[in-house]
């Protein structure tokens, strides 16, 4: 009896805790949502529900001329469709690249200690530098290669700076996969490469998914390098959000609206990949 009671109590506690945390997450999100539907006069208030609900902030994302003359608005910027597409292309491709290269490197590092203790650590370097100083050298380098304002330059830059996430997260996952599986496979005549793809890859799937999701999110929201390296053609979503500035400062409404739109794709991915976060295989298992 007591056991059952404790169960119920724990269960209730569990739901309450989850509920509280969800609330904590949702409150600022609710603020974003409310801003997206509020007119200028209501951006700096304390209440959530707009008194004058408006779609203007979303309209302005596609037709900014329609916004001129309304309080706060002065800037005309391009519609958001291009930056959205740019972001999608750049982020997807660089994520795939970073995860793939990360996976290969992590495997070698985990099983064979390539490229050596210092080499692996070296990849962390890319995340250790405050980006501000790195910006000017990158600009100089890219402009000499005539790579400014291209999708290509962003893709390889983002891959290069996020590949370390792929490597380290995947190494963590691969480390915990028992070697016996691969040994068995190779004993049965599979080549190392085949083993890699047919045995290790599926087991490491949750690692790929976590690394991929996180790299995607990092790249999707990256601002500084995109700002400096793009002008017109390869402008990404975060750069575009920064353009909504009017005579009275930041246009919080359109920025919130665009942030919402921009979060739809990542959240869809986040929702869809959930079953892949959990693996069919498990750590530490030896047989069966």
């Amino acid at each position: 009896m007591k056991f059952h009671g404790t169960r119920v109590l724990l269960s209730a506690l569990k739901y309450i805790t989850i509920g509280v945390f969800i609330l904590w997450v949702l409150i600022p999100v609710a603020w974003v949502v409310s801003l997206a539907f509020k007119p200028y006069a209501e951006w700096r208030v304390s209440y959530f529900v707009p008194k004058n609900f408006t779609w203007n902030n979303f309209i302005v994302l596609f037709k900014s001329e329609a916004f001129i003359g309304i309080m706060g608005a002065t800037a005309i910027v391009e519609p958001v469709t291009k930056p959205l597409i740019n972001s999608l292309v750049v982020t997807s491709l660089s994520t795939i690249m970073a995860v793939m290269i990360g996976f290969f490197t992590a495997y070698g590092a985990s099983r064979y200690n390539t490229p050596g203790p210092f080499g692996l650590f070296f990849t962390l370097l890319t995340r250790m530098l405050p980006p501000a100083t790195f910006v000017t050298p990158i600009m100089v380098y890219y402009s000499n290669l005539k790579l400014l304002d291209t999708h290509f330059s962003l893709i390889i830059l983002y891959s290069a700076v996020t590949v370390t996430y792929g490597i380290w997260i995947l190494k963590g996952f691969i480390d915990a996969i028992p070697i016996e599986w691969e040994e068995a496979a190779m004993l049965e005549g599979a080549t190392p490469i085949k083993t890699l793809f047919k045995v290790v890859l599926p087991i490491a799937r949750p690692g790929l998914v976590v690394a991929g999701l996180f790299i995607f999110l990092l790249t999707w929201t990256e601002l500084l390098f995109a700002l400096v390296l793009t002008n017109v053609y390869a402008v990404t979503l975060p750069v575009h959000i920064s353009k909504y500035v009017g005579a009275v400062g930041q246009l919080y409404g359109p920025q919130a609206a665009l942030a919402l739109i921009g979060s739809v794709i990542p959240i869809a991915i986040g929702y869809a990949i959930q079953k892949h976060l959990v693996t069919g295989f498990t750590f530490g298992m030896v047989r069966g």
């Binding site: 290269i101 490197t105 070698g108 064979y112 390539t114 050298p137 080549t191 190392p192």
Partner: peptide, 25 residues
Amino acid sequence: PPREIKYLATLPVNILLNAVLIIPF
């Protein structure tokens, strides 16, 4: 490591990091 694995595990990441980051660094 078998040669192929060694190349796979070191070449792509080396190319990427070196081509993109070494010179600016």
